[in-house]
């Protein structure tokens, strides 16, 4: 019999063997994209699931990371490693600057504020031609090389991205079980009570926002090294919405939610793009969106807490209070 402790190593080993089974670059690239999105949604999940703040601007941070790598490596001849570090730090700095006023907003206003930021950044990518290359973007980004190791193939990149996913997963698991994690969970349960416990909720929300921006920047930097070309189109408002969707569909406050959410949204998108033209000849992209929406609506009806809401959750499930015994 397999004990439970053997299950996870087995799953991970099987996953690591995937590139040898899959000999199609198409499938491998999908797995890499899922990994990159998972990194972003992991950070967004902390922001949304614990600090209770929504962001419709994370494609902006994602793009900032990507453009940082593209500009620094092609225009300023930075070494890839330093460019990647900058791609993490810059979005974090910008989040620290815009976070303080933005996080004072609540609910709908916060959504609009972050959305405005995302659109602003996207516009800058399009219009800042001297630096960003405008709509045609920047090509010729070198491969990422760390020490003597160059990530010049999809297989190598697959392992790099999923190693990062695993590290972030471990980090978040550490975080949630710590003093800071308890404070974050406290904010999502009752902000008044959290303040009473001495938690500076404004500051902690800001930290969660910065953390999520750092991860989005990291994913963006890796994305630029993977595609070796960058243009504004993947960083629009639509992408920000998709990130929020992944976080919610995967399940906020759950361990595997970000991964499941990213996988479902990416795979569903690919599947619909392939299936719909078979069913409805000549159907355009708008049909995809309709079916996509329908599937997600049904999913949220039948699994309102998201795909990850089973088994071992980061947040223990709430239990209905029982009646006080006499």
């Amino acid at each position: 019999m397999w004990s439970k402790s053997l299950l996870w190593p087995a799953v991970i080993l099987l996953f690591l063997a995937l590139p040898f089974v899959i000999d199609s670059n198409y499938y491998l690239s999908i797995l890499i994209v899922i990994g990159l999105y998972t990194i972003i949604v992991q950070g967004l999940g902390i922001l949304m699931g614990y600090a209770g703040q929504v962001s419709f601007g994370h494609a902006g941070f994602f793009g900032l990371g990507g453009y940082t790598v593209a500009i620094l490596t092609t225009r300023f001849d930075w070494s890839p490693v330093f460019a990647l570090i900058a791609a993490v730090i810059l979005p974090g700095l910008i989040a620290a600057i815009i976070g303080r006023p933005t996080l004072k907003l609540r609910e709908l206003y916060l959504a609009l504020g972050t959305m405005g930021f995302g659109i602003l950044i996207h516009t800058l990518f399009n219009e800042g031609r001297e630096l960003t290359g405008g709509p045609s973007g920047i090509s010729g980004i070198p491969y990422l090389s760390i020490g003597g190791l160059s990530f010049d193939s999809d297989i190598k990149f697959f392992y790099l991205v999923w190693a990062v996913v695993l590290l972030v997963l471990i980090g978040i698991n550490n975080l949630i079980r710590s003093r800071v994690g308890r404070a974050l969970r406290a904010i999502s349960e009752s902000e008044h009570a959290a303040e009473t416990a001495g938690i500076d909720t404004g500051k902690l929300k800001l930290k969660a926002f910065i953390f999520s921006a750092l991860l989005a920047g990291l994913a963006g930097g890796l994305y630029a090294f993977y595609i070796t070309f960058i243009s504004p189109s993947p960083f629009g408002f639509h992408t920000s919405v998709q990130f929020v969707l992944m976080a919610v569909v995967g399940g906020l406050g759950t361990f595997l939610g970000p991964l499941l959410g990213a996988a479902l949204v990416v795979l569903l998108g690919e599947l619909l793009r392939w299936v719909i033209p078979l069913v409805i000849p000549g159907a355009g992209g708008e049909y995809e969106i309709i079916f996509f929406g329908l599937i997600l609506v049904f999913l949220m009806i039948f699994r309102p807490k998201g795909l990850g809401a089973f088994g071992k959750n980061l947040k223990p499930p709430a239990v209905k209070p029982s009646v006080a015994p006499e």
Binding site: G171, I172, N174, L175, S178, R179, V180, G181, R182, A183, R185, A186, E189, S190, H192, A193, A194, T196, A197, G198, I199, K207, F211, K315, P316, P317, A318
Partner: peptide
């Protein structure tokens, strides 16, 4: 205003937030 999703012990430990020092980065890296 309890933290309903947390255990009884975690509620009290959160109440002791001010007695701890561990910050965000140190928590991430354990």
């Amino acid at each position: 205003q309890l933290f309903n999703g947390m255990t009884v012990l975690e509620n009290v430990m959160t109440g002791a937030y001010l007695n701890g020092k561990t910050g965000f980065v140190r928590s991430l890296l354990r």
